[in-house]
Amino acid sequence: MPINKRVGLGLRPPHYQYIIENGPSIGWFEVHSENFFMRGGPSLQLLDRIGEGYPLSLHGVGLSLGSAERIDSDHLKQLKALIERFSPFLVSEHLSWSRVGGQYLPDLLPVPYTDEVLEIFSNHIDEAQSFLGQEILIENPSSYLEYNVSTMTEPEFLNTLCQKTGAKLLLDINNIYVSSVNHGWDPSLYLQSIPPSFVREIHLAGHSQKTFEDGSSLLIDTHSSQVCKEVWALYAEALQLGMQVPTLIEWDTDIPDFEVLMGEARLAESYLKEQKVIYG
C-alpha cells in the first residue's frame, strides 16, 4: 500500500519495547528529532532497529525558524546527522519560534503574520533546506494568542511561505481546530484556503480545555486524549478536498497502551482509505 494511504504513530519511549517485540502493523513512525540529539546509546540503537522495519519521519520542535536571530548552525548539523543516519521519508518543523538572545524557551511560540516575519521565516527555510539538502514541511501551530500587528491570516501566511520557498505543509487538523476555537476562526474556511498540493502530511491528536478563574477558557493542544469528533469531521473534509497524505496520530501526555493508539490509527486509516464522509 502506498505510504500516502498509511497512518503513522508518534513513537514514544513507553512503546519502544512493544514495537520491537511485536512488530505491529502500522504504516510508519514519527519521532521528535531533538530527542535523538545524543552522541550514542540505546535510544539511537532502538531507533535504528525500528527504522529497519518501518519508514521514519523526523519532526523537529527546536530549530526556531521564526526567531529574529539566525538559526542555530549546530542544531542544523545535528539534524543533518540524524537525516543521514535514519533516511527519513519526511522532515518537518513548526511555524513558530523558541529562541531569543541565544536563549531557548521550550515551547512552540507564535509569530506575528507580517511581511517582515514572512521574509525572515522564508530566509530561514531556504537556509535550512539548502544545508539539509532536503525539503522540509512546516506545521501550522496551535495558538493561544493573536498579535495585533498581524496583517495576514495564518493560511495566507503559510501559502505565501510555500510559494516563496518551495517548502510544503504538515497540516495539523487538531491545531486548526484548537486555534479556531481560541480565536473565533472558521476551521472549514481555513482548510479550504490551503491548496491541497501544498500538503504533504497531516497530524491528528487530542486536546483539553483550560478554564480560567474569570470563567473564560481556551483549548490547549495537550496531545493527551483521543481525537475528538469535530477533528475527525475536519479530517474527512480535508480528505474530500484532496489532501490524501500520510497521516499521523500523536499522543504525548498520559500515554496509553499501544493498542489504544492502534485503535486511533485504524480509525484514521479507514477514513484515509474510504475518504469517509461524515453526515449530520
Partner: peptide, 25 residues
C-alpha cells in the same frame, strides 16, 4: 500591548505559554 484583545484576557492567553515552558522544564 502586542495581543489582540477579545473574550480571553491577554494575561490568561500568555499564561498558557508560561505554563507550557515551565512544564517542559
Amino acid at each position: 500591548d502586542f495581543v489582540k484583545i477579545n473574550a480571553v484576557s491577554p494575561e490568561n492567553r500568555f499564561s498558557v505559554y508560561k505554563g507550557n515552558v515551565e512544564g517542559a522544564f
